[in-house]
Amino acid sequence: MSIEAEHIHMERVYVWEVPVRLSHWLIVVSLLVLSVTGLYIGNPFIPVSGEATQHFVMGTMKSIHFVAAMVFTLSVLWRIVWMFVGNPYARWNEFLPVSKRRLVGIWNTIAFYTFLHRDSPAFVGHNPLAGVVYTVVFGLFAVMIATGFALSAANAHMNAMLSGFQFLIPLCGGLQMARFIHHVGMWLLLGFAAHHFWSAFLVGTVERSSLLDSIFSGYKVLTPDVARRARKHIEED
């Protein structure tokens, strides 16, 4: 399929499959819910007066946090599985720069972002720098899940399912440390989210690419040249 844009015949390439887009948006929503409820859990800021039995504010926040945590964990796991069964753009080697071409691509991308190069390097899926950043982000997801399950295991009843995660508590350096790491991790992820939102906006508007639309529709609109070149390289990797 091709469409007319700026006098060049652009090609529409199907990049992000449904599971990729779905897990992306589930992670966005659950992360926001987890952050809001988590901020309350860390520093309960809503005044509550009257009989204790009439209220359940912390209890409600923690219940919502837990449900969102399950959505989050399953979405992350699902996305990781898809790194091994999905299309080439969803694969794990789009994240880890294991090929020489993607290593060089990291430098080219940095050069473009720091105004050293005028042209953005062309990649169909993630650009290699973004891939590395997302690797770190998935690492943070794992840290949040590990510390979160350690905290959940702490007050699970002796034989309850969650008590199976008690082995995580010493790995986190104890519960208080787990709390601290969990809290720092949230801010690192929110910092990333701010960066991610803006760069998507930037790339979508300034570079006039279809990147911003692609996470909704799944399609990127690329020049035939880029589409061919990039696709060929992915096949080579």
Binding site: G42, N43, W187, L190, A193, A194, W198, L202, V206
Partner: peptide, 27 residues
């Protein structure tokens, strides 16, 4: 921790707003 975290998050957003402005100005 919460104040620092908020500061960093807002800082990142502000840096990107500036970055966008540079691009727009250049164009």
């Amino acid at each position: 921790l919460d104040k620092i975290g908020l500061g960093v998050t807002v800082g990142v957003a502000a840096a990107f707003a500036t970055h966008t402005a540079v691009h727009v100005a250049r164009r």
